[in-house]
Simulated assay, not measured.
Amino acid sequence: MSTDMTARMLRLLSLLQTRREWSGADLADRLRVTVRTVRRDIDRLRDLGYPVDSARGHAGGYRLAAGTDLPPLLLADDEAFAVAVALRTAAGGLTGIEETALRALAKLEQVLPRRLRGQVTALQRGVTGIAWTTGGPRADPALLAALAVACRDHEIVTFDYTTRTGATSPRRVEPQHLVASGGLWYLLAHDTGREDWRVFRLDRAAGVAATGHRVPARELPGADPGAFVAARLAAAPTRHRAVATVRAPADDVRAHARHPATRIRPLDGTTCLVDASDDSLPRIARTLAGLPADYTLDADPDVLDHLRESAQRALRATG
């Protein structure tokens, strides 16, 4: 192969690895060649062992099929380093992924170019993780991966979902975005049964199954999925009510807020309301403890009892 042809085929392979399906016209436009040249290059990739599927007709296209004999991925330097960083720091809010991530990192390191291997080695030596055994809710990595694919391909999925009250029901949704917040993972999806947008906590979902039915992407109300999820979480009912009037400007309190669902409303230039209501009494206590100024509290009796007990334990410990 000529140098130009080799470079073009590597670029073609890289493009096929970034998207589920490409039309011949799109590939030709990206590579600045004819559609006929794209077809010839696809045939060359197949001769080299890359399983490239194609479909004829107006809606036809090319995609790199999955398979056990798929040759290694092609990653640019910045992509390889980004993968190494992600593996090394994986992965908050997921169950049992730490050891798997380190094994994957070891495999990646074996095939890295020498110019990157030193950077990754320095990263491994300079970064230390802390294993927090909080016993809190954790998402299943396999479930997260399945939903990530469904979001990418706009494929309808089904699963069983347990609500905050303990009721379980089957759901059929069009996944749109995954959002991580406060150690939890959330799925933003359009619920086909309820004909509305819903936010699902992944630690409460089970039995995710792809239907094979792909649909056009829906337009999300609002441009930012994270902000949309935060607003839905803020508006959701909670088991325990706790509202603090804080003697500090709203912007100062927002700078210290750890969770986007924390509801903060300015009263004037020097005070604001913080709605710390939650299903978890310890989380309410952590939110209030993080406030940067004095406050008065309007809360349910169980919240006040929990705060008093916590304060008394702290006082006994310091006495």
Rank of each mutant, 00 (worst) to 15 (best):
L143P: 00
G166L: 03
F228H: 03
G61A: 10
T238Y: 11
H213M: 03
G212L: 07
I284D: 01
G212Q: 04
R286M: 10
G193Q: 11
T271G: 08
P170S: 06
T168M: 05
L64A: 10
R117F: 07
D224H: 03
V111W: 10
D268K: 06
P260M: 07
D279S: 07
S14Q: 15
T134N: 15
R125F: 14
S2L: 11
R44L: 12
G57C: 09
Y50S: 02
L45P: 01
D47I: 13
A131C: 04
Q119R: 15
R30E: 15
W22M: 01
A146P: 05
T34V: 06
L87N: 03
M9A: 07
T3P: 04
D275I: 03
P260E: 05
G129Q: 14
A248W: 06
E155Y: 09
R254A: 08
A276R: 02
L70N: 09
L31R: 03
E174C: 08
G193K: 06
Q17P: 00
V38M: 06
R247I: 11
L143V: 11
D203C: 11
T162W: 05
D4H: 11
V111Y: 04
E155I: 12
R316G: 04
G207Y: 12
R32V: 11
L178N: 05
L94Q: 12
P216W: 07
R316N: 08
Y62N: 02
V149Y: 12
E98R: 15
A289R: 08
R263T: 13
D69P: 02
D77H: 15
R39T: 08
L16R: 01
L70I: 07
A148I: 04
R265S: 05
A7V: 14
P71S: 10
P249T: 05
T287V: 10
L178E: 05
T287H: 08
T68Q: 10
